[in-house]
Design a protein around this nucleic acid. Sequence first.
DNA 1: GATACCACTGACCGATTGGAAAATAAAAAT
DNA 2: ATTTTTATTTTCCAATCGGTCAGTGGTATC
Lengths: 221, 221
Amino acid sequence: MEAQTADVARKPARKQQQRSIVTQQKLLDAAIEAFSENGFKGTSTRDIAERAGVHHPLITYHFKNKEQLWREATDRIFREFNVSLVKAMDEIPDIDPKAKAETFVGTYLHYSRSQPALHRIILQEANCPSERLDWLVEHHLRPLYDEVHTAIAGMQQIGIVPAGSPALLFNMIRVCAGGLVALKLELKQTSDIDLDSDEQIAELADLIIRVFFPGEQPSLG
Amino acid sequence: MEAQTADVARKPARKQQQRSIVTQQKLLDAAIEAFSENGFKGTSTRDIAERAGVHHPLITYHFKNKEQLWREATDRIFREFNVSLVKAMDEIPDIDPKAKAETFVGTYLHYSRSQPALHRIILQEANCPSERLDWLVEHHLRPLYDEVHTAIAGMQQIGIVPAGSPALLFNMIRVCAGGLVALKLELKQTSDIDLDSDEQIAELADLIIRVFFPGEQPSLG
DNA sequence: GATACCACTGACCGATTGGAAAATAAAAAT
DNA sequence: ATTTTTATTTTCCAATCGGTCAGTGGTATC
């Protein structure tokens, strides 16, 4: 039993101070950056604290330990992405699946560009089994997959998407968007592609649509 | 000036012992595994030595330092891949570009499956600028890009590959193959895809061809 | 078999790691 | 203004880090 006194005698719980919120935000931002660059093992809590401009024991004060900081930082990215995805998708009528697809790809690309950690964190954790990967799959990846997966299958039936495993197709689309953005430093050096520019992101979005959704939208009438 | 005595008086240089070669191989294999799982910073030389079943000072004995071990391990993967790629491509006549494409994708996929580090190492280093990334680009990534890039442009002209930036298309194909294999642990959990199985690798190969090379081969007569 | 070199072992170094603990400062509640 | 709680700072710890080095054992050459 925890020492949490039940309903009765609940402490008034003094409200969290503003500076504490700021510190937490700075630490979360720094953690996202550091973890996506060097992975969980490769990132030191002192490095995170330094990027945040904060003393390192504040990490254990605000987040208990490195693992928990990772979880909350990762959670923030995926929740934020989900919010912008839902907001964008809600504006497109269900009756127009191709526009839905375009919006999904566009949102994924634009969010990835502003926050490449979205894909990088996954890649960092997918290299070997871990509790972090399990957590990531259960809380964020599987829900997204389950939703988009059926949408793709539906688009195959009306001929917008080529035949084949919808699971494979979804993940191919995903890596063409997020995976390419995650590689943007390399692409700049090998292929003269600058995925920080609006034009080239738009070009990539267009290409993904043309390659993976080549079918014409059936008449809506 | 180094102490290397010029032409004259070159020491007979006793030949390398067999056990030393074995040790180096074990260290290289272990290094590839460890670096691709945890990145350069996240991997300790003691971890590598332990995976290799060897005492850790042998790393500096055989490879000078961690950085050099990374270079030689990475070099081995890419050289090995290049050998199997060239061998496979040489058997296909230049006159049949679609078969060339299929062979390229197939070889990339099969090698990636046996050695997922091929793509994982790139992903580990593409997250922030480093001398290792520069080295990787210059010695292995750019040469491959330069070669395949023009082949894709050629296939676009005869209508096999959809229009669009050949640079983007090449990299999309690359991540659909290597990037998906690098994510195979995640795909098993989210999408019930097992990229260790022959069938699903073949399915992915087929899908990549159908999506990125949808055009028919023009008559050869 | 003696010798010289190669491959390996064990012990050690200063620096960095994740985390705990005590002391201090700042802010809110009374 | 005093008390109480929250937030931060300073200091410290055992464990691990990359790398060095002197010494030991194994192997090929003479």
